[in-house]
Amino acid sequence: MKIAIIGGSGFVGTNLLNLLSKDQDFTTINIDINPSVVHSELTVVGDVLNQPSLEKNLAGVDAVVLLAAEHRDDVSPISLYYDVNVQGMRNVLQAMHSQGVKRIIFTSSVAIYGLDKDNPGESFPADPFNHYGKSKWQAEQVLQDWYKDHSDWSIRVVRPTVVFGEGNRGNVYNLLKQIASGRFMLIGKGNNQKSMSYIGNIAAFLRYLTTDVQPGVEIFNYVDKPDFTTKDLVRQTSAVLGKKIPTTSIPYWLGMLGGYGFDVLAFLTRRKLSISSVRVKKFCAVTKYDSTKAMNSGFKPPYTMQEGLQRTLSSEFGK
Protein backbone atom coordinates (compact mmCIF):
# COMPACT_ATOMS: atom_id res chain seq x y z
CA MET A 1 0.00 0.00 0.00
CA LYS A 2 1.36 3.40 -0.97
CA ILE A 3 0.43 6.23 1.39
CA ALA A 4 0.89 9.91 0.57
CA ILE A 5 1.16 12.16 3.60
CA ILE A 6 0.46 15.74 2.63
CA GLY A 7 2.08 18.06 5.16
CA GLY A 8 4.20 15.35 6.74
CA SER A 9 7.27 17.43 7.59
CA GLY A 10 5.72 18.66 10.85
CA PHE A 11 5.46 17.03 14.24
CA VAL A 12 2.55 14.64 13.65
CA GLY A 13 3.66 13.78 10.11
CA THR A 14 7.22 12.98 11.17
CA ASN A 15 5.99 10.57 13.84
CA LEU A 16 3.52 8.95 11.43
CA LEU A 17 6.29 8.51 8.87
CA ASN A 18 8.43 6.95 11.60
CA LEU A 19 5.74 4.28 12.06
CA LEU A 20 4.92 3.64 8.41
CA SER A 21 8.54 3.56 7.23
CA LYS A 22 9.21 0.63 9.60
CA ASP A 23 6.27 -1.39 8.25
CA GLN A 24 6.96 -3.51 5.15
CA ASP A 25 3.26 -3.36 4.23
CA PHE A 26 3.60 0.32 3.36
CA THR A 27 5.53 2.57 1.05
CA THR A 28 5.26 6.28 1.79
CA ILE A 29 5.74 9.67 0.21
CA ASN A 30 5.71 13.00 2.03
CA ILE A 31 4.39 15.96 0.04
CA ASP A 32 5.22 19.20 1.81
CA ILE A 33 6.10 22.80 1.04
CA ASN A 34 8.78 22.49 3.75
CA PRO A 35 11.71 20.05 3.82
CA SER A 36 11.65 17.15 6.27
CA VAL A 37 14.53 17.09 8.74
CA VAL A 38 14.04 13.39 9.49
CA HIS A 39 12.62 11.94 6.27
CA SER A 40 14.21 13.93 3.46
CA GLU A 41 14.51 10.78 1.29
CA LEU A 42 10.70 10.38 1.33
CA THR A 43 9.88 14.04 0.74
CA VAL A 44 8.98 15.90 -2.43
CA VAL A 45 8.15 19.59 -2.62
CA GLY A 46 4.44 20.17 -2.97
CA ASP A 47 1.89 22.79 -2.02
CA VAL A 48 -1.84 22.28 -1.41
CA LEU A 49 -2.37 25.54 -3.30
CA ASN A 50 -0.74 24.02 -6.40
CA GLN A 51 -3.14 21.40 -7.75
CA PRO A 52 -1.05 20.36 -10.81
CA SER A 53 1.93 19.48 -8.60
CA LEU A 54 -0.36 17.52 -6.28
CA GLU A 55 -1.70 15.50 -9.22
CA LYS A 56 1.82 14.66 -10.33
CA ASN A 57 2.92 13.55 -6.87
CA LEU A 58 -0.19 11.44 -6.20
CA ALA A 59 0.43 9.09 -9.13
CA GLY A 60 0.25 5.46 -7.98
CA VAL A 61 -0.96 6.35 -4.48
CA ASP A 62 -3.58 4.22 -2.67
CA ALA A 63 -4.54 6.60 0.14
CA VAL A 64 -3.88 10.15 1.32
CA VAL A 65 -3.35 11.44 4.85
CA LEU A 66 -3.98 15.19 4.78
CA LEU A 67 -2.14 16.96 7.61
CA ALA A 68 -1.24 20.26 5.92
CA ALA A 69 -2.83 23.24 7.68
CA GLU A 70 -2.42 26.78 8.89
CA HIS A 71 -2.92 26.36 12.62
CA ARG A 72 -1.04 28.97 14.66
CA ASP A 73 -3.04 31.49 16.70
CA ASP A 74 -1.36 34.45 15.01
CA VAL A 75 -1.47 33.67 11.27
CA SER A 76 -1.46 36.80 9.12
CA PRO A 77 -3.22 37.56 6.87
CA ILE A 78 -6.30 35.77 8.20
CA SER A 79 -7.21 34.68 4.68
CA LEU A 80 -4.36 32.13 4.83
CA TYR A 81 -6.47 29.93 7.12
CA TYR A 82 -9.11 29.61 4.40
CA ASP A 83 -6.67 29.50 1.46
CA VAL A 84 -4.71 26.57 2.92
CA ASN A 85 -7.28 24.73 5.01
CA VAL A 86 -10.35 25.07 2.76
CA GLN A 87 -9.16 25.70 -0.80
CA GLY A 88 -6.28 23.33 -0.09
CA MET A 89 -8.83 20.61 0.67
CA ARG A 90 -10.60 21.26 -2.66
CA ASN A 91 -7.29 21.04 -4.52
CA VAL A 92 -6.34 17.78 -2.80
CA LEU A 93 -9.70 16.20 -3.64
CA GLN A 94 -9.47 17.22 -7.28
CA ALA A 95 -5.91 15.90 -7.52
CA MET A 96 -6.98 12.61 -5.93
CA HIS A 97 -9.90 12.34 -8.34
CA SER A 98 -7.60 12.88 -11.31
CA GLN A 99 -5.34 10.04 -10.14
CA GLY A 100 -8.13 7.66 -9.13
CA VAL A 101 -7.33 7.82 -5.39
CA LYS A 102 -10.48 7.26 -3.33
CA ARG A 103 -9.29 7.08 0.28
CA ILE A 104 -8.48 10.07 2.46
CA ILE A 105 -7.76 10.53 6.17
CA PHE A 106 -8.11 14.17 7.17
CA THR A 107 -6.92 15.65 10.46
CA SER A 108 -9.42 18.27 11.48
CA SER A 109 -9.55 19.55 15.07
CA VAL A 110 -11.71 19.69 18.18
CA ALA A 111 -11.47 23.47 17.66
CA ILE A 112 -14.60 23.10 15.52
CA TYR A 113 -16.64 22.70 18.74
CA GLY A 114 -15.56 26.00 20.30
CA LEU A 115 -14.56 26.60 23.93
CA ASP A 116 -16.10 25.52 27.26
CA LYS A 117 -18.41 22.89 25.78
CA ASP A 118 -19.82 19.97 27.76
CA ASN A 119 -17.67 17.02 26.68
CA PRO A 120 -18.75 17.09 23.01
CA GLY A 121 -18.88 13.93 20.93
CA GLU A 122 -18.73 13.72 17.16
CA SER A 123 -22.40 14.67 16.66
CA PHE A 124 -22.11 17.81 18.81
CA PRO A 125 -22.97 21.04 16.93
CA ALA A 126 -20.02 22.97 15.51
CA ASP A 127 -19.39 26.35 17.11
CA PRO A 128 -15.79 27.38 16.33
CA PHE A 129 -14.59 30.56 18.02
CA ASN A 130 -11.50 31.35 15.93
CA HIS A 131 -10.49 31.32 12.27
CA TYR A 132 -8.53 28.09 12.63
CA GLY A 133 -11.61 26.25 13.92
CA LYS A 134 -13.88 27.92 11.35
CA SER A 135 -11.60 26.96 8.47
CA LYS A 136 -11.29 23.37 9.68
CA TRP A 137 -15.06 23.10 9.90
CA GLN A 138 -15.42 24.49 6.38
CA ALA A 139 -12.88 21.93 5.17
CA GLU A 140 -15.01 19.17 6.71
CA GLN A 141 -18.04 20.56 4.89
CA VAL A 142 -16.11 20.41 1.62
CA LEU A 143 -15.48 16.70 2.31
CA GLN A 144 -19.14 16.04 3.13
CA ASP A 145 -20.26 17.77 -0.08
CA TRP A 146 -17.69 15.83 -2.08
CA TYR A 147 -18.97 12.52 -0.72
CA LYS A 148 -22.50 13.24 -2.02
CA ASP A 149 -21.19 12.68 -5.56
CA HIS A 150 -18.43 10.18 -4.67
CA SER A 151 -20.15 7.61 -2.48
CA ASP A 152 -17.56 4.94 -3.27
CA TRP A 153 -14.87 6.94 -1.44
CA SER A 154 -13.52 6.09 2.03
CA ILE A 155 -13.32 9.31 4.05
CA ARG A 156 -12.07 9.38 7.63
CA VAL A 157 -11.98 12.59 9.65
CA VAL A 158 -9.96 12.74 12.87
CA ARG A 159 -10.50 15.60 15.30
CA PRO A 160 -7.56 15.46 17.69
CA THR A 161 -7.34 17.60 20.75
CA VAL A 162 -4.03 19.35 21.46
CA VAL A 163 -1.12 16.99 20.69
CA PHE A 164 2.01 16.77 22.84
CA GLY A 165 5.13 14.65 23.00
CA GLU A 166 8.88 14.51 22.69
CA GLY A 167 10.21 17.11 20.27
CA ASN A 168 7.02 19.17 20.07
CA ARG A 169 7.30 22.92 20.64
CA GLY A 170 3.62 23.80 20.82
CA ASN A 171 1.34 25.10 23.56
CA VAL A 172 1.60 22.02 25.83
CA TYR A 173 5.41 22.15 25.66
CA ASN A 174 5.37 25.83 26.61
CA LEU A 175 3.04 25.07 29.52
CA LEU A 176 5.14 22.15 30.76
CA LYS A 177 8.31 24.21 30.37
CA GLN A 178 6.88 26.97 32.55
CA ILE A 179 5.77 24.46 35.17
CA ALA A 180 9.12 22.65 35.15
CA SER A 181 11.01 25.93 35.51
CA GLY A 182 9.34 26.61 38.86
CA ARG A 183 8.28 30.06 37.65
CA PHE A 184 4.76 29.06 36.71
CA MET A 185 1.86 31.49 37.07
CA LEU A 186 -1.57 29.90 37.42
CA ILE A 187 -4.38 31.98 35.92
CA GLY A 188 -7.66 31.24 37.69
CA LYS A 189 -8.22 28.26 39.97
CA GLY A 190 -6.56 25.64 37.74
CA ASN A 191 -9.48 23.19 37.93
CA ASN A 192 -10.29 23.39 34.21
CA GLN A 193 -9.81 20.00 32.55
CA LYS A 194 -7.59 19.70 29.49
CA SER A 195 -8.08 16.88 26.99
CA MET A 196 -4.77 16.04 25.32
CA SER A 197 -3.37 13.51 22.83
CA TYR A 198 0.05 11.89 23.10
CA ILE A 199 1.93 11.86 19.80
CA GLY A 200 2.72 8.15 20.00
CA ASN A 201 -1.00 7.39 20.19
CA ILE A 202 -2.32 9.83 17.59
CA ALA A 203 0.28 8.63 15.07
CA ALA A 204 -0.72 5.02 15.82
CA PHE A 205 -4.41 5.88 15.35
CA LEU A 206 -3.77 7.49 11.97
CA ARG A 207 -1.78 4.42 10.94
CA TYR A 208 -4.67 2.23 12.13
CA LEU A 209 -7.12 4.14 9.93
CA THR A 210 -4.99 3.61 6.81
CA THR A 211 -6.13 -0.03 6.90
CA ASP A 212 -9.83 0.93 6.92
CA VAL A 213 -10.92 0.63 3.28
CA GLN A 214 -14.70 0.64 3.70
CA PRO A 215 -16.52 3.39 1.75
CA GLY A 216 -18.35 6.06 3.70
CA VAL A 217 -17.62 9.00 5.98
CA GLU A 218 -16.55 8.34 9.56
CA ILE A 219 -15.60 11.05 12.07
CA PHE A 220 -13.56 10.45 15.22
CA ASN A 221 -12.56 12.66 18.11
CA TYR A 222 -9.17 11.63 19.45
CA VAL A 223 -8.34 12.13 23.12
CA ASP A 224 -6.15 10.21 25.54
CA LYS A 225 -7.81 9.78 28.90
CA PRO A 226 -7.91 10.75 31.71
CA ASP A 227 -8.36 14.50 31.27
CA PHE A 228 -5.90 16.37 33.48
CA THR A 229 -6.57 19.71 35.12
CA THR A 230 -3.84 22.34 35.15
CA LYS A 231 -3.25 21.48 38.81
CA ASP A 232 -2.90 17.80 37.83
CA LEU A 233 -0.21 18.74 35.31
CA VAL A 234 1.69 20.58 38.03
CA ARG A 235 1.50 17.54 40.32
CA GLN A 236 2.50 15.11 37.56
CA THR A 237 5.42 17.28 36.51
CA SER A 238 6.57 17.59 40.12
CA ALA A 239 6.42 13.80 40.58
CA VAL A 240 8.22 12.91 37.32
CA LEU A 241 10.99 15.47 37.77
CA GLY A 242 11.29 14.84 41.50
CA LYS A 243 11.12 18.45 42.63
CA LYS A 244 8.67 20.71 44.42
CA ILE A 245 7.13 23.19 42.02
CA PRO A 246 5.64 26.32 43.57
CA THR A 247 2.89 28.19 41.72
CA THR A 248 1.65 31.74 41.82
CA SER A 249 -2.05 32.28 41.15
CA ILE A 250 -3.73 35.38 39.72
CA PRO A 251 -7.43 36.01 38.99
CA TYR A 252 -8.75 35.23 35.51
CA TRP A 253 -9.78 38.85 34.84
CA LEU A 254 -6.25 40.02 35.56
CA GLY A 255 -4.80 37.38 33.24
CA MET A 256 -7.12 38.45 30.42
CA LEU A 257 -6.23 42.09 31.01
CA GLY A 258 -2.58 41.18 30.63
CA GLY A 259 -3.40 39.23 27.46
CA TYR A 260 -5.08 42.26 25.92
CA GLY A 261 -2.03 44.32 26.81
CA PHE A 262 0.18 41.89 24.89
CA ASP A 263 -2.27 42.08 21.95
CA VAL A 264 -1.76 45.83 21.80
CA LEU A 265 2.02 45.43 22.12
CA ALA A 266 2.07 42.85 19.31
CA PHE A 267 0.05 45.20 17.09
CA LEU A 268 2.29 48.17 17.76
CA THR A 269 5.57 46.28 17.32
CA ARG A 270 4.34 44.00 14.50
CA ARG A 271 5.86 41.09 16.40
CA LYS A 272 4.43 37.67 17.23
CA LEU A 273 4.45 37.29 21.01
CA SER A 274 4.07 34.12 23.08
CA ILE A 275 1.27 35.65 25.19
CA SER A 276 -2.06 36.91 23.84
CA SER A 277 -5.67 37.22 24.97
CA VAL A 278 -6.61 34.22 22.78
CA ARG A 279 -3.96 32.04 24.42
CA VAL A 280 -4.98 33.13 27.92
CA LYS A 281 -8.61 32.33 27.09
CA LYS A 282 -7.68 28.91 25.70
CA PHE A 283 -5.41 28.21 28.70
CA CYS A 284 -8.24 28.86 31.16
CA ALA A 285 -11.04 27.19 29.19
CA VAL A 286 -12.40 23.71 29.81
CA THR A 287 -11.32 21.64 26.81
CA LYS A 288 -12.82 18.24 27.50
CA TYR A 289 -13.95 15.98 24.65
CA ASP A 290 -15.48 12.55 24.30
CA SER A 291 -13.46 9.92 22.41
CA THR A 292 -15.60 6.86 23.04
CA LYS A 293 -16.05 6.19 19.32
CA ALA A 294 -12.30 6.04 18.62
CA MET A 295 -11.67 3.83 21.65
CA ASN A 296 -14.47 1.46 20.57
CA SER A 297 -13.20 1.23 16.98
CA GLY A 298 -10.82 -1.64 17.71
CA PHE A 299 -7.83 0.65 18.17
CA LYS A 300 -5.70 0.17 21.30
CA PRO A 301 -3.45 3.10 22.26
CA PRO A 302 0.12 1.89 22.74
CA TYR A 303 0.69 4.31 25.64
CA THR A 304 -1.32 5.47 28.63
CA MET A 305 -1.72 9.18 29.21
CA GLN A 306 0.59 8.97 32.22
CA GLU A 307 3.25 7.14 30.19
CA GLY A 308 3.06 9.75 27.43
CA LEU A 309 3.44 12.61 29.89
CA GLN A 310 6.31 10.88 31.69
CA ARG A 311 8.14 10.17 28.43
CA THR A 312 7.72 13.78 27.35
CA LEU A 313 8.82 15.33 30.65
CA SER A 314 11.79 12.99 31.01
CA SER A 315 12.93 13.66 27.44
CA GLU A 316 12.50 17.43 27.52
CA PHE A 317 13.23 18.43 31.11
CA GLY A 318 14.85 15.45 32.81
CA LYS A 319 18.44 15.57 34.01
Rank of each mutant, 00 (worst) to 15 (best):
A139L: 06
H39A: 09
I29E: 00
G182V: 05
I179D: 03
R183H: 15
G114F: 07
D62W: 10
N18F: 13
T229V: 06
V264Y: 09
V286F: 13
L20I: 14
R271C: 06
V101G: 06
N201Q: 10
K194G: 05
A239K: 04
F129K: 14
L67F: 12
M185Q: 14
F228M: 09
I3C: 05
V223E: 06
D290Y: 04
P128F: 04
N171E: 06
P226F: 00
A266F: 05
S53E: 14
L268C: 14
R169I: 06
K56E: 13
G8V: 10
G121D: 15
F164Y: 15
L206T: 07
G190H: 08
V223S: 05
G133S: 00
N192E: 14
L80P: 00
S76W: 05
G121T: 07
V157N: 02
V86M: 01
G167Y: 06
F220G: 02
E55S: 14
D227V: 12
E218P: 00
K225H: 06
M1W: 10
L186P: 08
S108C: 10
Y173S: 12
P246E: 13
S238Q: 05
D73W: 12
K281P: 04
T230P: 00
V12N: 01
V286Q: 14
G200W: 04
T161Q: 08
Y208L: 11
V75F: 02
W153V: 08
V61Y: 01
V286L: 14
Q144A: 07
G114I: 09
M185D: 09
N50P: 03
Y252E: 09
T230L: 15
I155L: 05
E218R: 12
T28F: 05
E166H: 08
G216A: 02
H97D: 12
N171Q: 07
N91Y: 04
K319R: 15
D263I: 01
K281C: 07
Y208K: 09
S238T: 01
L42G: 01
M256H: 13
K225R: 00
M89V: 11
I29C: 11
R159W: 11
K102N: 07
G100N: 05
Y113C: 01
L206K: 07
N191T: 13
Y147T: 01
G188N: 07
D47V: 05
A139F: 07
S197A: 15
A59N: 12
Y222F: 14
N171M: 08
W137H: 09
S315Q: 11
D23W: 00
P160K: 04
I250E: 13
T14I: 07
R271P: 02
G60H: 13
G13Y: 05
G298M: 13
I33L: 11
N296Q: 15
M295P: 06
I275D: 04
M89C: 04
Y260R: 15
G259R: 06
K136T: 03
I179V: 12
S181Q: 10
V65H: 09
E140N: 03
G259M: 02
F262R: 10
K319G: 11
E41W: 06
T292W: 04
K177T: 11
T292N: 11
T269D: 03
Q306N: 10
N50R: 04
T248N: 07
H131L: 10
E307R: 05
V86H: 02
I6C: 04
N168E: 14
A180R: 12
F267K: 12
A69D: 11
K244Y: 10
I219R: 02
N119I: 04
S21N: 11
A285T: 09
Q310L: 03
V84C: 02
L58A: 06
